[in-house]
């Protein structure tokens, strides 16, 4: 399969040995990207209003978590048991499985930086892309985004709320990228050569454990460039050949094995 090459390739190296699973990144992502809290009632969905309340917030298939932290277990019994947490944003694959299946080109990978886009007004909600993404990084708006009274008084200016029927996903906080480039232009700097830290997504910025390192994988001056080559680095389901721009690191072998468990063929 032909893979587009980019001069700039934004990526993450997530150190699983540092993530405590606290969830701050998930909350920060929801606030940044205007993901509405899961309210029970939807007064505008007339049919639904007649039938039942909206899904429970703990129905993980019906709620939106662009950033989702998975719990891993080494599968051993007490006291040999070990646990680890794996934060999963969109992998921004070099060779995305979702892009070619979209019948209306609502998702694409063609902008410098290599972020897989999602154009909400184009999305017709067929959800082919969701079926295609092996990382379950895409979410369908089963419900309209509704904030409890007053809570929508001021939303994040980063991105418009998406209506029911649209697929959405992590875009590495794309507005922050645009802003960083504008800032660079204003400062007379090269927007195509941003310094480390000029563009940081919300999740990486808030993480108290410093588990998420973000930068341009192609830029030797960015930390991720070297980190991605560490002997402890790996990518999820590497063998699928989707070339994710998100790397993980762990010194624990069992964690690395589970990250690429498509050979083993079983869920954990």
């Amino acid at each position: 399969m032909h893979m587009k090459e980019f001069k700039i390739k934004w990526g993450m190296v997530i150190d699983i040995d540092k993530c405590t699973g606290c969830g701050a990144c998930m909350v920060a992502c929801q606030v940044e990207n205007n993901i509405a809290p899961m309210t029970k009632k939807d007064p505008y969905n007339y049919v639904q209003a007649l039938t039942k309340d909206r899904d429970d917030a703990d129905n993980k298939l019906r709620t939106l978590t662009w950033m989702n932290v998975y719990e891993l277990s080494n599968g051993k019994s007490f006291p040999e048991h070990e646990v680890a947490y794996l934060p999963r944003p969109c992998m921004q694959c070099g060779n995305p499985a979702c892009v070619p299946v979209c019948p209306v080109v609502a998702t694409d990978k063609n902008e410098e930086g290599g972020i897989v886009s999602q154009i909400y007004p184009r999305c017709i909600g067929c959800r082919y892309c969701m079926a295609a993404c092996p990382y379950h990084a895409r979410y369908f708006n089963w419900w309209d985004p509704l904030w409890p009274e007053g809570m929508d008084k001021q939303l994040s200016p980063a991105v418009s709320p998406r209506p029911r029927g649209v697929v959405e996903k992590c875009n590495f906080c794309h507005t922050r990228y645009a802003k960083a480039k504008d800032q660079a232009r204003e400062n007379g700097e090269d927007p195509m050569n941003l310094a480390e830290g000029a563009y940081v997504p919300a999740c990486a910025e808030i993480c108290p454990s410093g588990a998420i390192t973000f930068g341009d994988l192609n830029n030797p001056e960015h930390k991720v460039h070297e980190l991605a080559k560490s002997p402890h680095a790996f990518r999820l389901l590497e063998k699928l050949g989707l070339h994710p721009q998100v790397y993980y690191m762990s010194k624990r072998e069992w964690v690395r094995k589970q990250g690429d468990n498509y050979n083993a063929g079983d869920k954990h």
Binding site: M1, H2, K4, Y70, L72, L86, A97, V99, P100, V101, C102, V105, D108, N110, E111, S117, Q118, I119, Y128, A131, A132, C133, P134, Y135, H136, H174, T175, A178, L236, L237, L240, Q258, G259, N261, Y262, G265, D266, K267, H268
Partner: peptide, 28 residues
Amino acid sequence: MGFDRRTFIQLSVGGTVGILFTPVLWKA
């Protein structure tokens, strides 16, 4: 954990191979 061979198979079945070239200014 939800990464497994079954999702991989879903991918091969649903996926069409090829790249669609539509330069879109999606930020705008």
